[in-house]
Design a protein around this nucleic acid. Structure first.
Length: 468
RNA sequence: GUCCCCAUCGUCUAGUGGCCCAGGACAUCGGCCUCUCACGCCGAAAACGGGGGUUCGAGUCCCCCUGGGGACGCCA
């Protein structure tokens, strides 16, 4: 049997971190088993579905590198199949019309809660004579759920879960306007699309019971279920917009790499022994449902940042340069030094070693991109006192005399001066750093000199040097 | 309220009855390296929620409690 999984988001918002993980797990599972991964947009709620949201979901998946097989299925476009299934159930006596008004139902729930009962529909139209139907009320179609025994699902993550069927009420299949509810639509679509494994959030666990009943009523074999635990915010509460349930692309904005986010999401709720750094290829090879944990996990930015730092250090210099150039242009109002792109790519090995996010990388690269004169941070200004500036003047002279401008030569010149003046290397390296980068923190200063080139280095020194 | 799920360091987790006075990673704190900051390396502190069983033996199995989470829509 070929494995077929699916990701079925509702287009009522962006693709957030929880949805991204669900998509990732489904994708990984399909790829691992050489199966298919489908994308279905659950847009049966026309009032809340938007094209922008569909776009956002698709671009989010694209950024993460999660590609799907076949066309994107619009659930709404399959409406005829949904109503067809409902009619069949109606004809088989497995569904019935219910004429309750919303107010009546609200009252029913209120009353049930007050008297300590579960808030289920009481089935008042289940066996009522249709002749009693009030006029002018469009009925909904409800499922005539079994009343006896219990419903069991064999979940690949949660194990065997059972519930007494009297806990499950007669769910609405078709709304008063004749459109299908989610519960009916998923079952019909998953069946028609040949979905073999439904991997989704824990919040759907109780839905799985109802859906199982529907599968049976329709004479279909239910798919395998795997309900993965939800992701919580850092405080343990449900993930909300305040702490982490941002669009995945918000993480792109914050400077995270898609491969880092995938690795992070993968380890949130899934493990393979003590392995932490797991690239996509490796993940496909290793991923399976038995590695999925059962406890909810908290979202932790520090961990994501650490992973991001790891992938950043291994990322291609040219790619990173492409990533930060537009950011630099924006921060510097378009006033980039002519040589900026070149310098940044050349300096990237030293830059990426010191950043955890693309945002940080951009900030650290700023001094390469900026035109002279380099503004000084408060600390840098403090380092550049009179003595330091005079010393830099002397250093400038020996640097100017260098023929082959390379790391060894500039280092030799700098160390030579320190030795000559009987001072620690730091006494000259820090002022030099301040002059060249405008800050007290930078990549190795000899590398910086080489990246800037002789002319720019001497120029930047001239900007701060004080004649003896 | 009813039903369902979950429970190992601050966080993510390893652990499937003896190999665990519980291992790894992030974060934290020391130290080394060193031109700064990172990286890297070395080290420290840090957990089986509580109570009952079962067993020669329980983090691991069972029950209860507690605590967290989820579901209960003509939303998905």
């Amino acid at each position: 049997m070929t494995v077929v999984t699916r990701f079925a988001p509702s287009p009522t918002g962006f693709l957030h971190i929880g949805g991204a993980r669900t998509a990732l797990f489904n994708w990984l599972y399909a790829r691992h088993h050489g199966g298919r991964f489908r994308l279905r947009i659950e847009d049966t709620d026309r009032a809340r579905s938007t094209d922008e949201a569909v776009e956002a979901i698709i671009s989010g998946l694209g950024w993460l590198g999660l590609d799907w097989d076949g066309d994107v299925v619009s659930q709404f476009s399959r409406a005829a199949h949904h109503t067809g299934a409902a009619e069949r159930l109606l004809a088989d006596g497995k569904a019935y019309r219910c004429y309750c008004t919303p107010e009546e139902l609200a009252e029913m729930r209120e009353h049930a809660k007050k008297s300590g009962r579960s808030m289920l529909y009481d089935g008042r139209w289940r066996d009522r004579d249709p002749a009693e139907a009030p006029s002018g009320v469009d009925p909904v179609i409800r499922f005539k759920a079994p009343r006896q025994g219990e419903t069991v699902i064999h979940d690949h993550v949660q194990g065997e879960v059972r519930v007494a069927t009297d806990q499950l009420d007669d769910m609405v299949l078709l709304r008063a306007d004749g459109t299908a509810t989610y519960m009916l639509a998923v079952v019909v679509d998953d069946h028609d699309m040949g979905i073999t494994h439904v991997i989704r959030g824990d919040d759907h666990l109780t839905n799985a019971f109802r859906q199982t009943q529907l599968y049976h009523a329709l004479g279909w074999e239910p798919p395998a279920f795997a309900h993965i635990p939800l992701i919580h915010g850092p405080d343990g509460a449900k993930l909300s917009k305040r702490h982490g349930a941002l669009a995945v692309e918000a993480y792109r904005e914050m400077g995270y790499l898609p491969e880092a986010l995938c690795n992070y999401l993968l380890r949130l709720g899934w493990s393979h022994g003590d392995d932490e750094i797991i690239g996509t290829e490796q993940a496909i090879r290793w991923f399976d449902l038995d590695g999925v944990g059962r406890a909810p996990a908290r979202f932790d930015l520090a961990r994501l940042s650490n992973l991001n730092g790891h992938y950043l250090r291994r990322a291609d210099d040219e790619r990173l340069t492409r990533l930060i150039l537009p950011r630099l242009a924006e921060m510097l109002d378009g006033k980039l030094a002519e040589d900026a792109p070149n310098r940044i790519e050349k300096g990237m090995p030293g830059l990426k070693e010191r950043a955890k996010t693309v945002t940080e990388l951009t900030e650290n690269a700023m001094f390469y991109a900026r035109k002279r004169p380099q503004p000084l941070t408060e600390n840098a200004a403090r380092v550049l006192d009179g003595e330091a500036r005079r010393r830099l003047g002397r250093l400038r002279r020996s640097l100017a005399a260098i023929g082959g401008w390379n790391t060894e030569a500039v280092e030799a010149a700098t160390r030579g001066l320190a030795e000559e003046e009987q001072i620690a290397l730091g006494k000259i390296a820090q002022p030099l750093r301040a002059a060249l980068s405008g800050a007290t923190v930078s990549p190795g200063i000899f590398d910086v000199m080489v990246v800037l080139g002789k002319e720019e280095t001497l120029g930047r020194l001239d900007d701060v040097v004080e004649s003896p």
